[in-house]
């Protein structure tokens, strides 16, 4: 299977990169830093520790996704790897999927490593392990993968740096979409409301992945919402890569 071979090659090339090691060391520093919050108590025991862990893991997972995405796309241009779909039997879709999966697998791997660290730490501190908190970490992994797919999609018609910048900006916008919808519902004209609703449903909506308030306060999540949040990134990633491949296959070689 060419996709699996490409995924493996991409993941191995990323792992051999010195920057990946730097990111790993940075992650260790962040985790150690979060442990400093053990002694703080703000009314709920270990709340600040859990909050710092969640925030740092969210930041790191997205940083991993953006760095890996940038690295893979930069190599595509530097080593002229984008000619592969045009010069071999590999389709544009398989090529894009293989390159994306290689980077996404490493992000998922880091997410699982964070889950392991959290499990050990929470077990030691006698905090409930199977809670919404762990689900939030999984959703950060999904969010990071979606952000990576957005950057891959944008790179099909933009240069690498612009794709990365717009990808990060879309992540920031996507986090504020639920608030924007609330705000326009209260203060703006119906035409603006419709426009914002279009943004809410069409742009990658990263606010769906944010259940940190429920996670930290151990509030339940409706099953219907959970099923949606887990299905959403899968569908969105498939659609983005599909459209990206269609655009890419129509792009003249060298552009």
């Amino acid at each position: 299977m060419p996709v699996i071979a490409l995924t493996r090659a991409t993941a191995l090339s990323l792992l051999r990169n010195g920057f990946s090691r730097f990111l790993f060391i940075l992650a260790c520093f962040f985790m150690a830093g979060a442990l400093l919050m053990l002694s703080f108590d703000i009314g709920v025991r270990y709340r600040l520790l859990e909050n710092t862990l969640l925030a740092s893991q969210c930041f790191l997972l997205h940083l991993f996704a953006w760095s890996f995405g940038f690295d893979v796309l930069k190599k595509n241009t530097a080593e002229k790897l984008y000619v592969l779909p045009f010069s071999t039997s590999l389709s544009a879709r398989s090529w894009l999927l293989g390159r994306f999966s290689g980077a996404a697998i490493l992000v998922v791997g880091m997410g699982l490593l964070f889950l392991l660290v959290d499990t050990v730490l929470f077990a030691a501190l006698k905090i409930d392990i199977f809670s919404v908190l762990m689900l939030q970490v999984l959703l950060y992994v999904a969010s990071a993968c979606l952000s990576l797919a957005v950057i891959f999609f944008l790179s099909c018609f933009l240069d690498v740096l612009s794709a990365l910048i717009y990808g990060v900006v879309l992540w920031i916008i996507g986090h504020g979409l639920d608030e924007l919808l609330l705000l326009t519902d209260q203060q703006f004209e119906p035409a603006v409301q419709i426009l914002v609703q279009c943004f809410y449903y069409l742009l990658p909506n990263f606010s769906f992945f944010d259940i940190s308030s429920q996670a930290l306060n151990r509030l339940p999540i409706e099953t219907e919402k959970l099923v949606f949040i887990l299905t959403y990134p899968l569908i969105y990633i498939v659609v983005l890569l599909d459209i990206g491949a269609a655009i890419f296959s129509r792009k003249p070689i060298g552009q």
Partner: peptide, 16 residues
Amino acid sequence: RPLSGAFHTLLADHYW
């Protein structure tokens, strides 16, 4: 809230 992105709960603790 919209600008703090995924870090709004951490910001809430900071303000507390």
